[in-house]
């Protein structure tokens, strides 16, 4: 998009100097990527073809782990299905919720500083505390939620929540939304909203645009890189859902919340089948990679970058 005149000064063109600078900026990450990320990933890739119990030397078993996952592991498909079901509900809800919350906080209301802090509070509640909290909130007998349902709504047959396979997932989703709407996603949207030039709104106002038109034609298009980022990360995060189920339901009852990452964790740190867990992880890796790739492919049709460099 920008004009770069190839000046062949001192043997290295502008393009060449740009490349060198680019690599220099990249250098710390390149080292980090190799040492702390790709190295361990390569190791786990090797483990996925081995029987590895953490303590003893890995024993190469070829494709056995993968074969077992696809043919013998009953929980593989169960957990994959549950994870996708969770993601399909949670990702759109939390994106819309977070965007709405961010926009609300961007309205220059008096006390915005306080509101912003309040919205962020669930995210700040320590997991150890919130685990106890939610177990108590959702306790079907003596918890406040069912107390409210019985005594204020007059519904005798209140849900069993984490005790009932039909309700456990809903409980986890409510829990997740509580933390997600005002969390990191909202902060990132806020940072993005700050980047929308004010004069574009002014121009739109002069053209007589209403709130909706401005939202539709100014906010959304300029926010697409942020929406895109939050969506990609949201999907990856939802497919890796772990903590909520780990602390609140332990994957139960009757495998109703046995998410894929819980399956990996169980295999890795409860049964100590690190090889098998690595194979599971690489399958998830592959699935998420395909998803992300598709999103990037599709993104060129809807994401607008002000300063992108393409050739």
């Amino acid at each position: 998009m920008t004009v770069t005149t190839p000046t062949a000064r001192r043997g290295l063109g502008l393009r060449g100097r740009e490349a060198v600078a680019g690599y220099l900026f990249l250098l710390p990450w390149l080292i980090g990527l190799l040492c702390f990320v790709i190295g361990p990933m390569v190791a786990s890739g090797y483990f996925s073809f081995a029987k590895y119990d953490i303590v003893n030397t890995p024993e190469f078993v070829g494709l056995k782990n993968y074969q077992d996952i696809f043919t013998k592991d009953r929980l593989f498909w169960t957990s994959l299905k549950l994870t996708f079901r969770y993601a399909i509900i949670v990702v759109p809800l939390s994106l819309i919720g977070s965007l709405a919350a961010a926009m609300l906080l961007n309205q220059a209301l008096k006390g915005t500083t306080l509101f912003r802090t309040f919205f962020f509070l669930p995210h700040l509640t320590p997991v150890a505390a919130s685990a106890v909290l939610w177990a108590w909130m959702f306790n079907p007998d003596v918890g406040p939620i069912n107390y409210f349902i019985r005594n204020n709504l007059g519904i005798e047959n209140a849900p069993g929540w984490f005790r009932d396979p039909q309700w456990a997932m809903s409980g986890l989703i409510i829990m997740a939304m509580w933390g997600a709407i005002g969390g990191n996603t909202m902060l990132i949207f806020l940072a993005g909203l700050q980047g929308v030039p004010q004069e574009l709104y002014e121009a739109a106002s002069i053209d007589g645009a209403g709130i909706w038109t401005k939202f539709r034609n100014v906010t959304i298009p300029l926010l697409t890189p942020t929406i895109f980022f939050n969506m990609v990360l949201g999907i990856i995060g939802a497919l890796r859902v772990f903590t909520a189920a780990f602390v609140a339901t332990a994957g139960g009852p009757a495998y109703a919340t046995w998410f894929y990452s819980l399956h990996i964790y169980t295999r890795a740190f409860k049964y100590f089948e690190m090889g098998y867990a690595s194979a599971l992880a690489w399958i998830l890796f592959f699935i998420m990679f395909v998803f992300t790739f598709i999103q990037f492919r599709a993104s060129r049709r809807w994401v607008y970058y002000a300063g992108e460099v393409n050739e």
Partner: peptide, 20 residues
């Protein structure tokens, strides 16, 4: 490299813990 970078987001931390 960027694609690779993104890819690292997708490998669950559990399995890189022991190598690390």
């Amino acid at each position: 490299i960027f694609l690779l970078t993104l890819g690292t987001l997708m490998l669950p931390a559990e399995v890189t813990l022991i190598p690390l």
